[in-house]
Every structure is written in structure tokens, then in C-alpha cells.
Amino acid sequence: MVRGGKAGLVRVWNVFGPLLGLLFVVAVFSANPDVRPYFLTGANFKIILTQTVIVALCALGMTMIIVSGGIDLSVGSAVALTSVVGATAVLKGASPALAVVLTVATGGLLGLLNGAAIAGLNMLPFIVTLGMMGVARGSAKWLGGNQTVNYPDSPVNRLMALEAPDKLLPLPIGVWLAVALAVLMAVVMGQTVFGRHLFAIGANETAARLSGIRVRRCKLAVYALAGLFFGVGGLMQLSRLTQGDPTVAIGLELDVIAAVVIGGASLSGGSGSVAGSMIGALIMAVLRNGSNQSGWPTYMQEIIIGIVIILAVAVDRLRQRRTA
């Protein structure tokens, strides 16, 4: 009974820790009376949510990967390549539905390649995805002919369009899609056998294998599934820029990893939560939005986001020491 209570408390804290962090940054920006009337509005939260979508979608895939003890550095390049694939498809006259499918499938294919090398050849995820980062980025530039791919107006652009920019509702379709996928992933990670296996592999791969988990098959599935999420991220990037841009999202992988880590995941695997990662992604978007509106210089933002990442991990360490 006592034990169950303590474990429950830890779980609650795992989500509430990041949530407190989010409330804290919102409070910091709201404290300034010049900024508050604009910052605390429905219209502004709509903007923040829209700006979070791409990082959040990628973080859903990254949470699976990090929980299972891996890492993926090719996220930014995957987003760029898939967005160029989608833009090229629209330009060549594909229907919006086909363009969407091709974009997402390209992400899945990249993930499958990553997973095959990592699980099949037993290679380090860091190295494999570092290679894929270059391959996908180069392919995006090749496919786009070294420039942005512009297509005539398409329904794809509506996914992330801000209708009525002065009100909270309606939110762009992309926001609802991200929320729905996050709920789905929270169920998959928390309630399914597959989800429990990911935590087991991340915590101790050898023990997981010895207890009968098909580790290789799991890993292949994790990278391929995550690739699909990066493909959806690429689709949203395409819709937001209304063009395919081979140079977009350079360094996005670091934002995504930071979101997952701020959300309470450990880079050594075995811990992390979907809700935490989503809040982590929101924290970074709020920081960016708030420091813009407060007129803080750009370099201050970079310093602050860096400090937040280190603080989040430090808090996580303290927490683990206490519960250990």
C-alpha cells in the first residue's frame, strides 16, 4: 500500500515537475505589465500551440527512441527531406491526399533504414543517425535542385494555416492532430505490451532479451514508427512554409531532444513520458514567444533555453537520488 502510494507519487511528480516548469515560465512573462495584456490572450496561445506542433510531433517519435535507450540525430534532415518530397509531389500534380501519404511514408522509410542498421547490424544509434542526417539533408537538396520547391496554392497549406489570427479558436488542424497523436502515444507507451517492452529494453537491454523480449524487432519498429512521426512533422513544416525547403529545420533534432529531456526522460534510457515531452516542447515555445514579446535580445533566448535544459536535467538527477 505504502509502496504503491510512493510509486504513484513519483508518477504524478514526473508529469507535474515539467508542468510546474511550464507554469513558472508563463508566470515570468505575465509578471511584466507591459507584456501581460498581449501575452495572456487566446490569440497568443493559439500562436504558441501552432509553433509547438512540429517539435511536439517529432518529440513523440523521439520519446519512444530515447525511452528504448536510443537517439536519433536525423530528425531535422528527415523533416526537410519529407517536406521537399511533399512539395515536389504537389508540384507534379499529385492529389493532396497522395502528397500527404508520400510525405509521411518517406519519413517511415528513413526510420526503417535507421532501424535496420541499428537493430540488424547492431550499430550505435548515434553513428547511424548521424550518417542519416547527412544523407537525408543531401537528398533533400538534390531533390529540390538546391533551392526551395514552390507549388501553386494547395489544400495541404490549410493544415497549419491560422484562420482568424485574433482569436483562440479555431485552432489549425495540425494542433488537433498533434494532440490526438499524443493521446494515442501516451496509451501505447503506458498501456500496451509494446510500450512496456520499450521501457524494459531501455532500462536493461540484456535483461530484456533474456526475459524473452524480441529486442531487435522492437528496435526496428521504434525507429520506423518514429520516422512516421518525423514525416508528419515534415508535412506540417511544408504546410507552414507553403513550400518545400531543403535547408529548413537545421538543428531541429536538438530542440526535440531538449523537449524530451526537459519532459523528464533520461538519455540513458528506461524513463520518460509522452505528457512530459509535450510539456517540454511547450516550455521551449513559450520561452521563445515570451522573450520575443518582452523584447529580449536573441542571444538572451539562446542562453536561457540552454540554462533551462541543464536545470531540467539537474532536477531530474535530484529526484532520482531521492527516490532511489
Binding site: 509553433q51 529548413v248 520575443n292
Partner: peptide, 16 residues
């Protein structure tokens, strides 16, 4: 030179 980030800056000043 990041287009998405420049869009974000314009949006953030819009709600400001």
C-alpha cells in the same frame, strides 16, 4: 536564415 523561425518572430509580434 531560418525561414520557420522568422515566421515565428512575425507571429509573436502580431499577438504582441
Amino acid at each position: 536564415d531560418d525561414r520557420d523561425q522568422q515566421i515565428q518572430v512575425v507571429e509573436n509580434f502580431m499577438t504582441r
